[in-house]
Simulated scan of single mutants.
Amino acid sequence: MRLRPPPGALPAAVLAAGALLSSAAAAAPPDGDARIERALRSSAPEAPAGAATEGAADGPADGDPASPAADVAPDAQGDEAASAEPLPPVKPRVRFATRPPPLHVEYAQYGVALAAEISLDAGAACPRSGPLYACILGSGGGLAIRSGYRSPGPWYFGGAYQFTKMDSSNLYRLGIFQQLRAEMRYLPDIGYRAAPYFSAGIGGVIYGNEWGAETGGALIFGGVGVELEVSRRAVLGVSCVYRPVLLAGWKDTAGYQRATAIAQFVGFELLLEVRTELGRR
């Protein structure tokens, strides 16, 4: 014979068990809360793999104990920030460029020049009065040809031949004034392509009608110039010289006797010269 619980006994038992559990939970120590929380976490569904990856990518939070920033003391963080600052740029040392030593090369130097002879005074060759007042020796222009030796230092030694057609006041059909000179130049090294120089020399002259030699004499000169080095083998230059000329007396084609004279000229040249290397020292 089966014993049946009285009606309403089962609900009363359930209510009594719930009351006991709630009182036990209230009286349980804090560890019981942790156990209940772990139980709830274990019973919760697992997060998807993508969510875990995103959390790992975001990195630990600032307050998380696993965060490296939280493990570092504030002083250590300040030291690391100071060490991470870029160092001030180091100023390069200023080195003054020094000019390389000159090439000790010797050259053969030769070329041509456009020449002008400006008459300052023809002297006794052209008296200022009388039947010989017409000046037979005036100014003129022509061409100069020269060649020489350029030393490894500042010196140049050479020779030049120059002819100029002079104004003869129609006393000559073609008055040609010819010069043969020995020359020297002193070119100080100033470190630039354009360099000044001093020149001087001595030579002889002849003068006459149509390349003739009706008179002759000697000359000396001195002057200055500027030489521009276009390349190692070519130079351009200009020069200005003062040139007194001693001319012997002669009889011109008109039959007049010309006295011995000291004529004075200022010469200008625009020159182009090339070099051929001879050797090095």
Rank of each mutant, 00 (worst) to 15 (best):
E229S: 10
V14E: 07
Y197F: 13
T253W: 07
R95I: 15
S23D: 13
G191T: 01
V230P: 02
R258T: 07
G159E: 09
R99K: 01
A160K: 00
A39T: 12
I206W: 13
R281C: 14
S129K: 05
V224E: 12
Y172R: 05
L270M: 06
F268N: 02
P5V: 07
L171E: 13
S199Y: 12
A44I: 00
P48V: 09
A49Y: 10
S169H: 08
L247F: 05
S168P: 00
D75N: 12
F157K: 00
G59A: 04
C126L: 12
G255T: 03
W211Y: 15
G237P: 05
F265Y: 05
V205Y: 03
L278G: 11
V72P: 02
E269R: 05
S129Y: 04
A61F: 06
I220S: 00
S83F: 04
P7H: 01
A144H: 08
G141M: 03
A116F: 12
P65Y: 03
E106I: 08
G50D: 13
P102L: 08
A27H: 07
A49F: 06
R99Y: 04
L247E: 00
Q178D: 07
E277A: 02
A82P: 02
L114V: 15
L120S: 00
P196Y: 02
Q162D: 14
I202A: 14
F96S: 10
G59F: 10
P154K: 06
A19C: 03
A34Q: 09
E54S: 04
G201I: 09
L246M: 12
A16F: 01
